[in-house]
Write a protein that binds this DNA or RNA. Structure first.
Length: 163
DNA sequence: GCCAACGTTGGC
DNA sequence: GCCAACGTTGGC
């Protein structure tokens, strides 16, 4: 079996709802509640075991990439869509043909130095990131290998030390 | 907390 | 299948 090339993603989360602290505490977490078809397609079809995930804090300052996770397992139906008690319950989703998917991700590391949105915006190497594209609100986004490497380099840089 | 930019829904 | 109304996202 030919090894599939590792791919990279950015997952947004509002830290008020679910932060990197929660992620570190939980270890492995199903990424539930994605109710956008574009993101659903990625979760169902593209995001695979072993892929890298940048954990991004949105909405609440400081907005930044704050950690790294790894995808464990394949895309599977998001169970919360069938639970009438759940926040993300979707009465129109047919269990025979689920509408929404999730993947599980595992906490790997916290970036010693979070890479802020401001920093991404100002870095010439990161201008193509969907994160800084005007009007782009996708909460699950593809990240290129070069962008991944660059973000990690910035995030792991010792505080106070020049690049 | 505001609101612009999106995405989805549903009447027609 | 159009599109107005509504809901959500997420930077500011």
């Amino acid at each position: 079996m030919a090894a599939r090339k590792k791919q990279y993603w950015l997952f947004k989360s509002e830290p008020d709802a679910y932060s990197i602290d929660d992620m570190e505490r939980d270890g492995v977490e199903p990424w539930d509640g994605i109710r956008n078809y574009q993101a659903r397609n990625l979760l169902r079809d593209e995001i695979k075991k072993g892929d890298g995930v940048l954990f991004y804090h949105s909405r609440v300052a400081p907005m930044a990439v704050v950690g790294v996770c790894e995808v464990v397992g394949e895309g599977a139906p998001d169970e919360t869509q069938f639970d009438p008690e759940a926040k993300y319950f979707d009465p129109k989703s047919d269990p025979e043909n689920p509408r929404w998917f999730w993947v599980h991700i595992r906490f790997q590391e916290r970036l010693p130095r979070p890479v802020t949105l401001k920093e991404v915006k100002e870095d010439p190497a990161l201008q193509d990131m969907m994160l800084v594209r005007k009007g782009s609100r996708l909460s699950i986004q593809p990240v290129s290998a070069a962008e991944w490497k660059h973000i990690l380099k910035l995030g792991r840089r010792k505080p106070g030390k020049k690049s």
